[in-house]
């Protein structure tokens, strides 16, 4: 069926709500309104006010109520309107969501999914456009998923909901309305498995979220110039599918990491360090990072476009490796 990325996410929740009556959904404006991006539309109508609930504007409590409900028998899939707002609940996510089991022992588990809308959206500004995955990489216990297609989003969200561990699920605002053909039948995608979006032999481009599309665009242009790029979407940021990444780099001997968040302290910093530690002898060139400029994302759209990587910047980075 032909669905948008948002509809695919909606379908995943609907199927899982039907499958498991312990699953609940809550967040700001998620009930009658269906969320400000419309992702939970129709769920309140089908599942009612006990299981699909609006909350007060209280992000600390949204995360924390999620923990308590998850530990004591429910399977909450909760929404943060913007992933930026997860920073309001940074302590709860970094300290409680991720560590409750480790600190209290094996009787305790936190089957909680925190969904949120991430990334730039043409003028959303510096506090509604961030990609915050790297800020949570530092807390063991969190699973993080950033899907770049409707197909991946649906299959991975279903796995996230069934996980007995906490998952942060980052939806890409610019992809919400992108349409794609996905299977009619139920399917799941395992957590922790990267996807090779375009096979190639000369360079490995590791791209996340919205950047996967830009990396694919860059790869097509590079092909015309005789460079055959392999584009890998990790899909799961944590735990990372190191095997697939390393297998590709051992083949191409070159790696470029593309992310939408700013460069300093980003995913690329961590992954580049990891690649040099593990694969130094396989590399023909240093790992390159293509990331947003180190600025608060400005409001003016021309500024915004300049700050975030596009295909040309990816192409330039790739060419420095040859």
């Amino acid at each position: 069926m032909l669905v948008t990325y948002a509809q695919a996410i909606n379908a995943a929740m609907k199927e899982e709500m039907r499958r498991d009556d312990k699953m609940v959904i809550f967040g700001e404006d998620v009930a009658q309104h269906g969320g400000i991006f419309g992702v939970t539309r129709g769920l309140w109508d089908e599942f009612g006010s006990d299981r699909v609930k609006n909350t007060p504007v209280s992000e600390n409590a949204i995360a924390a109520v999620g923990v308590g409900a998850a530990v004591f028998g429910l399977r909450p899939c909760i929404e943060f309107m913007y992933s930026d707002f997860m920073l309001v609940a940074y302590n709860e996510i970094f300290q409680s969501v991720s560590k409750w089991r480790y600190l209290h022992g094996p009787q305790y588990s936190v089957p909680l999914v925190i969904r949120s809308a991430a990334g730039s959206a043409f003028g959303a500004g510096a506090e509604h456009s961030n990609c915050v995955e790297s800020l949570f990489l530092h807390s063991p216990g969190l699973t993080m998923i950033t899907p770049s297609t409707a197909y991946d989003a649906k299959g991975l969200l279903k796995s996230a909901i069934r996980s007995n561990n906490p998952v942060l699920f980052f939806e890409q605002k610019q992809l919400y309305q992108v349409k794609e053909e996905i299977p009619d039948d139920e399917y799941l995608i395992p957590i922790g498995v990267a996807d090779i979006k375009r096979p190639g032999k000369d360079v490995t481009i590791i791209a996340v979220g919205l950047m996967v599309r830009r990396a694919l665009e860059a790869a097509e242009k590079l092909a015309a110039e005789g460079i055959d790029a392999e584009v890998i979407d990790p899909r799961t940021i944590a735990p990372l599918d190191r095997e697939t990444l390393f297998g590709s780099i051992r083949k191409t001997h070159r790696a470029v990491i593309v992310e939408e968040s700013s460069k300093t302290g980003g995913l690329g910093a961590e992954w580049a360090a990891m690649i040099q530690e593990e694969l130094y002898d396989s590399m023909d060139a240093p790992v390159q990072r293509v990331a947003a400029l180190d600025v608060p994302l400005p409001y003016n759209v021309a500024y915004e476009v300049a700050a975030i990587p596009d295909a040309d910047r990816i192409i330039s980075a790739v060419k420095t490796l040859f």
């Binding site: 409590a61 109520v65 530990v71 409680s96």
Partner: peptide, 30 residues
């Protein structure tokens, strides 16, 4: 903690766990 005895656990930054306990009460209400 002892989950079988109904102990929820505690957060080191005091106060954050008040909302966690509140989440448990939602599970009990259902």
């Amino acid at each position: 903690a002892d989950k079988d005895k109904g102990v929820i656990g505690m957060a080191g930054a005091l106060g954050c766990d008040i909302a966690i306990a509140t989440g448990v009460s939602y599970a009990l209400k259902l």
